[in-house]
Amino acid sequence: MATKPTLTVQQRQALLSSLTDVGPSKLIGYLPLYTIKDFLQMVPETIATSFTNQGLAAAQFGPEKCCIKSGALYIYDRTRLREFLQAQVNAISAAGLPLDPDQFVEHIALVWFEEDHPAHSIIAATFNRKAD
């Protein structure tokens, strides 16, 4: 049986920053369920509850409903995401993305968009990443 990796505090914080940065600096963050369970050695539902208690939304998708092999936990600021989507309504519609924040997260969890797809730059902006 393989041993589980031991992470430093800094490594744990770096991994968790994908989620903890939601709100202050980005609209959506996610971590693969594998990373949460095997590297962070945490329970996804516990993490989700922690963020929902802070007023953020959480959605967990298993491998059958996610383009991430192990599935993923998404944390997002529903209010700010709704505002972002409404401000980009023409681009969102043209890219074929849902305007509802919960449906948007579900859609981007399920479908992997290549960099040349019109949705890619929109999705990258929600993660506070540049679309290269």
Rank of each mutant, 00 (worst) to 15 (best):
L85M: 09
L73C: 00
E114Q: 14
T46W: 07
C67M: 01
L73G: 00
E115Q: 11
P118W: 04
L40N: 13
T6M: 09
Y30I: 00
N53Y: 06
E64H: 09
L56E: 01
T6Q: 13
L97H: 13
K65N: 15
D116N: 15
W112M: 06
W112R: 10
H120S: 15
Q11D: 13
D38P: 00
Q41K: 15
T79N: 12
N53H: 14
G62F: 05
S17T: 05
L85Y: 05
V22F: 01
F113V: 15
Q11L: 07
Q103W: 00
A119T: 12
S25M: 07
T20V: 04
G29K: 04
Q41E: 11
V89H: 15
V9W: 02
P63C: 13
L16S: 00
Q11W: 05
L16W: 02
P118C: 05
W112H: 13
I108P: 07
L15P: 06
Q88A: 07
R12E: 11
Y74R: 03
A87N: 07
G55W: 09
L33W: 06
P32E: 12
S50E: 12
P118N: 05
F84D: 06
L97F: 11
F104S: 13
R12Y: 03
R12A: 06
A14I: 07
Q41A: 12
F84H: 12
H120E: 13
D102V: 09
T49G: 13
A57N: 06
F104A: 08
S25R: 14
P98R: 08
N90E: 13
A91Q: 14
P44M: 02
L15S: 08
A72G: 08
A14N: 07
G55M: 08
E106K: 13
G29R: 03
G29L: 03
C66Q: 07
L16T: 00
T35G: 03
D100E: 14
S18Q: 14
H120C: 11
G29E: 04
I28Q: 00
